[in-house]
């Protein structure tokens, strides 16, 4: 019941209305051309083109998410702010380590060590599926295992991403450009010991917020989680910066 209330339905979106409009207009144009204007070929063809566009728009209208982008952003910011509050209140200064699903026993998640270690945590076996986890033998090897935007985004992938830069670029493009509609273009470059990902015209803006000081941005989180899954290695976000319309994320594999 609660779940039903939380869903914001926009059944009749712009695509539906445009599609219906073109369907009616196209039918009128074709019929007028064939019955009244003695089969004026170019006008009939124009009517057929309108009908083709109507079918395409109506087909796409069925696939548009029923939750508006504004609601999606609201839920995302609420979740991130809550985690960031916990991180800030605990006085955690260390950055998240993005783990592949093989090290979390389920789906890729981020580990935030409670204490800053001289070296990044080395995790060799799957961690228990709990919020507070012990990842090593040392007394300070305790951290928070949190779900990030990357966790959910990797769940949207149809298969495990390949490890090469081209495969990773294709996977990230299908996510950011196709499924999420959050960017225009993705470029992936291999830079030892990790990757540099350039996201053209990102539509998620959270750099500079206080949440961003505690955790990485949602874009970086998605990039690092997908890379962790592809390489089956933990990753950390080394650098994030905006240059004009391009957002650059540099991530490093944790050996």
């Amino acid at each position: 019941m609660q779940g039903n209330r939380d869903k914001v339905r926009t059944d009749k979106n712009a695509y539906t209305w445009t599609g219906l409009g073109l369907l009616v207009a196209g039918t009128i144009v074709v019929l007028t051309s064939m019955l009244i204007l003695s089969s004026l070929v170019w006008l009939t063809a124009l009517g057929i083109a309108m009908l083709i566009m109507a079918f395409i728009l109506l087909a796409l209208a069925r696939t548009i998410p029923r939750v508006t982008p504004e609601v999606g952003m609201l839920l995302l910011e609420t979740g991130i702010d809550n985690i960031a509050t916990v991180v800030e209140e605990l006085g955690i200064k260390s950055k998240p380590v993005y783990l592949p699903s093989s090290l979390t026993g389920g789906r890729p998640q981020a580990l935030i060590p409670l204490h800053i270690n001289p070296s990044l945590p080395k995790i060799t076996s799957a961690l228990p599926r709990r919020f507070i986890v012990r990842y090593g033998n040392g007394p300070d090897d305790v951290g928070l295992l949190v779900t990030t935007a990357g966790t959910v985004a990797t769940g949207m992938l149809e298969s495990t991403p390949g490890p090469s830069a081209t495969q990773l670029e294709s996977t990230l493009a299908s996510l950011f450009v196709g499924k999420l509609g959050a960017a225009d273009r993705i470029r992936v470059y291999v830079i030892e010991p990790g990757l540099r990902v350039e996201i053209r015209a990102p539509r998620i803006q959270n750099a500079g917020t206080w949440t961003h000081q505690c955790l990485d941005s949602s874009l970086a989180s998605v990039v690092a989680s997908v890379a962790a899954e592809a390489w089956n290695k933990p990753f950390v976000v080394a650098k994030e910066e905006q240059h004009g319309r391009t957002y650059t994320v540099e991530i490093e594999a944790v050996e």
Binding site: Y15, W42, A45, L46, A49, I52, M53, I56, L57, L60, I64, V177, G178, G181, D184, R203
Partner: peptide, 23 residues
């Protein structure tokens, strides 16, 4: 859904251009 818009614009432009050229 920018990719949807781009796709619709691409198909619509092509169909219109084809009509003009064929006429």
């Amino acid at each position: 859904m920018k990719i949807y818009n781009n796709y619709v614009i691409a198909v619509a432009s092509l169909l219109l251009l084809t009509t003009v050229v064929l006429v």
